[in-house]
Design a protein around this nucleic acid. Structure first.
Lengths: 326, 326
DNA sequence: CCTCCGCCTGTTAGCGTTACCGCCAGGGGG
DNA sequence: CCCCCTGGCGGTAACGCTAACAGGCGGAGG
């Protein structure tokens, strides 16, 4: 090791200076650090990992990171990880099924990551965990509560409850719901919250319409909704689909919010500029990402594998919801 | 090595089976593979890297991966990398400046990645490259042409030319432009294309308005635009800002496209559902991502460091642009 | 029958770092 | 005055893998 020679010490001392500076005399330390700078020395991570067993890399396996939610969560995980000195390796899933989830997890495993965060509001998350060795620290984001690992998630049900109550309080007799795909847990959570409020209030519960989160599907379902004479309020499971619904209603001549109130979910940055500006439920993806990372850190330090943390969503009332007509 | 013992061969033979299967007799190979499966053996990447010098990990340093363009590019880079057996480590930049760019690059360097892709349509990309050792294979996405590495990018200027010509062909006397931030190269490219067409046609060139890519900034600038009596056509540098402009114009009572034509850039999935559906320029971020990865692969194989690949954007005409009034 | 060559497999060494133990010097207590 | 203990540092081995070379064995050619 050149640095050791230049500083006139042994390789071991250089190692100590870099890993446990206090155990070396200040003067020696200074000499070593000078040599490090002089030679622009960078420790070889592979060699370090070989002996310590730690890589300093975390793995994130996530569904389509093109979507706003996952992308934002990933972004904040990465930020938090960086601040704690970790690097982040990603495995994006193109399709959501057991096989691709397993493949993603295996890939990160092969890379010898120190821990794994699974961002998959989907039942396949369970599958991913099955393929993780039991001793591998893991955390799930937006997953179900029945997993054997800590879970950080937004309280989808609470958000749906708030927005549905908001609509009822405006005098609407009932509220329709455009939901996300069936196997997505947050889609289910939003349905449960919505249905719960309607049942509790003794209101009729219209059939659930299933979209795929895209504006396109929102538009398609919105055209159907526009034919419902009774319709005065819709809760759409995300803002992109809500955009499609808004357009379908307008094309059918139904005014928002005068004839029909529309609410979304997520509060993506654009929704405040929709026409009309969208009432929605803000999910703090940043908070979820940070939380997930810190839970993983705790887990790596040997903490309780059963932690669950809920992030409260927030109702954001804009102009797409209003008093029931008539 | 347990696998070697179980298969009754040496460690070396196991290594050969895994890396260069043809060099080992079929029968032996089968016995080794059986042992590998039996013990669920996974090679230690750190040890392999220590001796081969290759990690099988690529680094991507990117601006805010929350934005649609970077997120999509990253997604496709990751897909392409996975198919080629590489893992991807990310360094997202929270702010775009030399320091954070340098920090991101250094972090990936410390992790000993085999190659780096810089996704930064920004002058700071140059800075990032300066901190890369010359022998480190690198590729830049959407960067300038003056970099000493291969560049994959969408031809921003061509896109701007097409959309501006489209607007002039509809009879508009001139076209206003809401641009992106000053130090973003693609913002500059779009300005150049737009200005070039106007100058070539001998039309007046209105002053450039500067947004920050957000709908919010589009709305703010749109309110100003709505006061311009001469205004009949606007080319907005991305779809999110265009959404803000649409809303500002509508609020001011100026109809789109009857009074004012509005065009965007990017063709994000939602723009087809704006009101009215947005005429825009489609950038194939997927193609750019795949291209960037394959250029990096070539570069790692020792290919020409001066490759440049342009992806052609495509004009998508929808309903937000129409014939000039009067 | 011997030799040479090519195929297959084994042996040895080393990648760069850290864990573990041991050595040495100096200070405090017996 | 000697011994032990502590702080600071060095030596050695080991982490798991593969590059490079070595060697055995069977078949082809002389």
């Amino acid at each position: 090791m050149d640095v050791a020679v230049l500083a006139g010490v042994s390789a071991m001392t250089v190692s100590r200076v870099l890993n446990d500076p206090d155990r070396v005399r200040a003067e020696t330390r200074a000499r070593v650090l000078a040599a490090v700078r002089e030679l622009d020395y960078r420790p070889n991570q592979a060699a370090r990992q070989l002996v310590t067993g730690r890589s300093g890399v975390l793995g994130v396996v996530s569904i389509d990171t093109t979507l706003y939610g996952p992308a934002t969560t990933l972004y904040y995980i990465e930020q938090a990880a960086r601040n704690a000195g970790y690097n982040v390796s990603i495995a994006s899933l193109s399709s959501l099924n057991r096989r691709s989830m397993e493949e993603g997890v295996q890939r990160l495993r092969a890379q010898a990551v120190d821990g794994v965060i699974i961002v998959a509001p989907h039942e396949s998350a369970t599958e991913g965990l099955r393929h993780l060795p039991p001793e591998m620290p893991a955390v799930a984001v937006d997953a179900g509560d029945d997993l054997p690992v800590p879970v950080a998630r937004v309280d989808q049900r609470a958000g749906a409850v708030r927005v549905t109550r908001h609509l009822l309080s405006l005098g609407h007799h009932t509220v329709w719901h455009v939901a996300g795909p069936a196997d997505w847990l947050d889609a289910e959570g939003r349905i449960e919250g919505w249905r719960g409020v309607l049942e509790e209030a003794g209101r009729p519960v219209p059939g659930v319409l299933r979209g795929d989160w895209s504006s396109r599907s929102g538009y398609r379902l919105g055209r159907g909704l526009a034919q419902e004479p009774e319709l005065t309020a819709v809760f759409v499971a995300n803002d992109q689909m809500a955009l499609g619904v808004l357009r379908a209603l307008r094309e059918a001549g139904r005014r928002v919010p005068e004839d029909v109130s529309v609410a979304g979910f997520d509060d993506i940055p654009e929704s405040a500029y929709y026409w009309p500006p969208l009432t929605t439920v803000r999910q703090d993806f940043g908070e979820v990402g940070r939380l997930a990372f810190h839970m993983l850190l705790d887990r790596m330090a040997g903490a309780d594998p059963d932690g669950r943390r809920l992030v409260e969503p927030e109702l954001v009332v804009r102009e797409s919801t209003g008093a029931a007509p008539g």
